[in-house]
Structure formats: C-alpha cells, structure tokens
C-alpha cells in the first residue's frame, strides 16, 4: 500500500472552477477546492445546493460544463464513469441504487468488477483462470461484507434489506472496487440514531485503511464528530471551508442555513 500523506498540500482530488448547467439551471457555479489525501472530508449545504451534482461530476455520471477535475494530479473530467472507477474513485447514492434482485453477496461481488478481467469467452467456457478469479471474487466480497457487518445477510436479495442496511451495503459495494477516494452521498439519510453511530464508526474504520472519504451529510452531529474538514456549498457556490469547529461558528454558514429554514 502506498504511503498516504495527510498533509493538505497533496490533494487527492482537485476541483478547478467546476461548473455544471442543466439547460437554464446552473447547479455548480465554478467550484474550486482540493481534498487532502487520507482525510474525511464533509461536504454540506442546504438542499439543492449542488452536492449530489458535484459527486456526479467527480464520478463521471455527469461531465461538467466547464472546469477541471484532477484525481491524483490527472485530469478526469469527461472520462466515462467506469474508467474513473478503475482509477480509484467509488461512490454511494443518495437514493439507494442497489441491484435489488441480486443477492447482497452478488452486489458486493459486482463491486470487484474493475479489479477483475474475465470476459465472455473466458466465463462462457470456464477457463481455469476465470474459475480462480471467481473464487477470489467470492473471498474478497466476503471480506467486505464482514468489514461492514452484513455477512449474515449475504444470501438475501438486496431489495429485501431494511433501508439502513441497504445504505451500508452500498458502502460495501463501493469499497469492493478498492477506491482510494470514496464518495458517500447522505449515507445517514433514513438511519436511526444507533445506526448513525455505527455508520460513524464504519466511516472512521474506512478512513483508517487509508481511503479518503468525501461525505455529503445533513446530520450535523455526525459531520462534526468524524470529519476532518468541511466544505460548505450554497447555490452551487463555494461558501466556506475549514475544520468542523471553524465552520460551526462561521457567520455565512449560519446565515445560509437559517435563511433556508
């Protein structure tokens, strides 16, 4: 495993003037920011601020109208999502996007996709290399299920899990791609208090493995407790950044949130 530097001087992800327009709507108005490698980065902002859009841009599901996105110094704006996943960015979705009729186990196995290679011929004819690979996929998927604590539900259809566990399963699936940066879009949405606490632990453990975590979250307690840095966006604009403590007392942030409520 490569050495992870926690110094903010080496951003794992750098946004330069990222803009995103949908027809007449401008969701991101030129965001510039660098996420330091190895930290837990929170991204907060009122509903409609553009947080999900930002994650879509970084993961390639949208390509920004203008601006640049650099991942470990390499421009990734405009790359296809599966290429970005191969490079080492993975994510979860605000609205759970599991493969519901597949089992929990299969969902995580799918996450191994960018790290494996057998194609139609190899799998259809069951080459020995493919069988070895399948065995490895199964072991590794089990490892990630254990890591998030869903091993007991492995054989259930993903759609049969309660929402809280579906959110956790999405994290397991994302981790299975071996990302060096993982984007979590409102992972605590719909979770009860105990589940949120466990989620906080899980995110910390992910961070301890060296993976950088970017987290969109409305649960301020969770954000304050686990994140190292916070980026606040408001109407698609970069409003403030800082440590959780700095953000808590930031007048512009307070205004943005009060103004909304």
């Amino acid at each position: 495993m490569e050495e992870i530097s926690k110094s903010p001087a080496v951003p794992i992800l750098e946004l330069r003037e990222v803009q995103m327009q949908f027809g007449g709507v401008t969701a991101l108005r030129g965001i510039s920011y660098g996420i330091p490698s190895g930290i837990i980065q929170a991204v907060i902002g009122p509903n409609g601020a553009g947080k999900t859009t930002l994650f879509h841009c970084v993961s390639g599901l949208l390509s920004p109208t203008s601006g640049e996105i650099l991942f470990r110094g390499r421009p990734i704006g405009g790359l296809l999502p599966h290429r970005i996943a191969e490079l080492g960015i993975s994510r979860t979705f605000q609205h759970v996007a599991l493969f519901k009729s597949m089992t929990v186990f299969e969902n995580v196995m799918l996450g191994r996709h960018p790290r494996t290679r057998s194609g139609f011929w190899a799998t259809g004819l069951r080459f020995p290399s493919m069988r070895r690979e399948e065995r490895r996929i199964a072991q590794e998927a089990m490892y990630y299920l254990d890591f998030v604590g869903l091993a007991d539900e492995a054989e259930l259809p993903a759609g049969a899990l309660p929402l809280g566990k579906q959110k956790i399963l999405e994290i397991a699936r994302a981790l299975a791609t071996e990302p060096s940066l993982v984007l979590l879009d409102e992972p605590a949405g719909g979770l009860n208090m105990r589940e949120t606490e466990e989620l906080g632990d899980l995110i910390r453990r992910i961070s301890e493995t060296g993976t950088t975590v970017a987290l969109v979250e409305h649960d301020m307690n969770l954000v304050m407790e686990i994140s190292h840095r916070v980026l606040v966006i408001h109407y698609g604009e970069h409003l403030a950044t800082g440590t959780p403590d700095e953000i808590k007392d930031h007048p512009a942030v307070i205004e943005a949130y009060l103004g909304e409520g």
């Binding site: 993961s59 999502p81 996007a97 493969f99 790290r115």
Partner: peptide, 15 residues
C-alpha cells in the same frame, strides 16, 4: 444483470 437493474450504479462501479 446490474446494467438491467441500475445502469448508472453499474457504470459507477466500474462496469
């Protein structure tokens, strides 16, 4: 099957 069920999630997971 992933493509069938959630195409953009499949894409984001590297498919």
């Amino acid at each position: 099957r992933a493509i069938h069920e959630e195409e953009s999630a499949a894409e984001a997971m590297g498919v």
